[in-house]
Design a protein around this nucleic acid. Sequence first.
RNA 1: GGGGUCGUAGUUCAGUUGGUUAGAACGUUGGCCUGUCACGCCAAAGGCCGCGGGUUCGAGUCCCGUCGACCCCGCCA
Length: 594
Amino acid sequence: MEWIRSHYCGDLRISNVGSEVTLAGWCQTRRDHGGVIFVDLRDYTGLTQVVFKLEINEDAHQEADRIRGEFVLAVRGKVAHRIEGNVNPKLPTGEIEVLVETLEILNPSQTPPYVLENREGVDEKHRLTHRFLDLRHPTLQNNLMLRSKAMQVVRNYFTQEHRFFEVETPILTKSTPEGARDYLVPSRVSPGQFYALPQSPQIFKQLLMISGYDRYLQIARCFRDEDLRGNRQPEFTQIDLEWSFTRPEEIFGIIEGMFAQLFQETIGVEVETPFPRMTYHEAMERFGSDAPDLRFGLELTDISDIAGECELKVFSEVIAKGGSVKAICVPKGAELSRKDLDNLTDFARIYGAKGMAWIKRNPDSWQSPIAKFFTAEQQQALEERVGLGIGDLVLFCADQPKIVYDTLGNLRKELARRRNLIDDSMYRFVWITDFPLFEYSETDKRWAATHHPFTMPNLEDLEQFGESDPGKIRSVAYDVALNGVEVGGGSIRIHREDIQNRVFHLLKLSDEEIASKFGFLMNALSYGAPPHGGIALGFDRIMMFLLQTDSIRDVIAFPKTQKASCLMTEAPSDVDTAQLDELHIRVKASAQQA
RNA sequence: GGGGUCGUAGUUCAGUUGGUUAGAACGUUGGCCUGUCACGCCAAAGGCCGCGGGUUCGAGUCCCGUCGACCCCGCCA
C-alpha cells in the first residue's frame, strides 16, 4: 500500500467529506461489532474514527480483526459524514469518519502495561519505567509542545527584540567551591582528575561580557547533585542572561517584558508590569519568606516588645536570648477546632518550632492557654498591634528569627490553602532586592555567599561593616518570585579585581585557593572588565506555572525519580571494570552492591 | 541524614480478631455481534501478597531489617 499521509488524525472536518485521505497513527481503541469494526486512530493532533465494513472491503475488514491497542496503522479511505444520531460531540472530528478501503498494519504492539488513558490513576513508577508510553498521553504531549512554544517565545524576545546573542558554554567544566555539590566526570587523559558539570554557566557568561559580547542568552542545562523535590531535578533548565553596562532597573524591565510576552503568547494571560519591588528585609518581616506569595494577606506582625515584658516565660526568655516573637492574625479563625490547632502545631514543628501559642478572640474575652500571662494593658496593646477582632484567631511563634520566619512563613501559606484564600487565576510577581551578601553557615561555621561569590556588594555596607560584621552587608542581588515560588535570581557582578579579592577573603578563601580555583577569572577582571550583571530564570518552574502542575516531572520529557535515577534507562548503573580502568578509578568495597 | 504515605493479578484496589482454595473492577485471551465511541453478551486465563529474616501449630495480616515510588525537613551559592 502506498501510504503517504495526507492528513493528521485531528484534521478532518465536514468540509473534507467525500475526499480520499490517508491517515497514520496508533490504535487508541477497537470496537468490533462483527460486520463493522471501529478503530479510533490517534496521533498528537487528535483522534479520528476509522470504520472497517465488510461490504466496503472484505480484506481490510478481515485484517482489522488483528488490530489491538497501540498497533501502528496506515489507512486509506473516503471521509464520510456520520449519519444522524451517530455524531460524537466530544470529538472535534466527531461529525465525520473514514470508511477504510485499504489498511496496513505498520507495526503491532505488545499489550501496554497499563491503560494509557488512565495515567492519573497509575503509580508513577510504572509510568516512569515506560516513559515512552506515558509521553503518548495528550497531557504530556501538550505540556512538551507548550514548552517548545515557550522556548521559541523566549529566544525570539531576547534575540530579536533586545539584541542578545545566544552562546553555548561548556558542559565539561571546572569544579568550584561554594554552592551545590557538583556532578563529577573523570578524565581519562588526566588520571585522577575530574571535570564538573556546570551548576550554572555563571563564570562563562561573565567572561563573555569581558569579551565584549554585550548581551548573552542561553537556555542552559544546569546540574546540581542535591536531594530532589517536587520542583527540583538534578538536571534542569535555566534561561540564563547577562548584560554589560547595565543596572538592575534595566534588567527588571526587560525581564518583566519577557514574562508579559511569554504568558500572553502561551496561555493568553495578561501579566501586569512593572512588578512590585520589595527588599529582602521587608519580605521577611511581612511574609517570613524571601519569595512571598502576594495573592493573600495573613501577614506577620512583630510583637517582640510586648512579649518581652509579659509573664509567659517561653516568650520572655526567647526575647532575652535575642530571639523574636511574631504573630499571624487569622480573620474568622476562632472557628478552628482544638484538633485544627493541634494539626497546625504539628505543621509548625516541621520547621523547627517547639510549639505554637494561640488566642481566640471571643465576643467578651480571650480564649487562650496563655491569656493569664498578659496584663490588661498588654492584651490591649497586642490586640491593636495584630488587628485582632471578634471571631479572629492569632497564632504565635517564639524562637530564633530564622525559625520564626520559616515557621510562620510556611504556616501562612498553609492557612491560606486550608481556608481557600488563594485565587488560582492570579499571577503575582514580585522583585525581592537587597539580599544579604553573606549567610552564616552553621554546618561549615563560616560565612557563605547568599547568591554566589561574584555578587556585587553594596559598597557603602562593605566599607562600614566589612570584616567586622559581614552579615550586615547588603548585595546588589535580586530574585523574582511568582505566587510564592522563586522563579529567578540574579545580581550585578563584581567587575573589579580588588573587590572580588576582598569578597573571596571574607569567604575565607586563601590566596592559593583563589589562584587555583578562580585565577582565570581574576586575570580576566584585570583586562578591562565592563560593569555587568544578569539573571537566571528557572525555565522548568515557569513551565509548571504555565501548565498549572505541581510536579516538575510533568514538564520534563525524561525526568528522574527522587533518588535521581531514571527508571526507564536504569541510570545510574554499573560499568565494566575495563571502563573504570581507563578512567583510573576503583570503586570502594563499601559501595559495591551485594 | 531525618519524618510521613504507599507496595496483594498487567493496572487500580478489597482482604475481618493470624485460620481451609487470596477476591473485585478494568485490561488481556477465545467466541458471538453491521453503528459503536467507557460498545454489548458468553467463556477463560492470570498471584514470589516487593524482598530477606523472625514470632507462631499456622503469616497477605504481627515483629525486625531491606529495596523501591511519592510528599516533606535538612540540603539546593
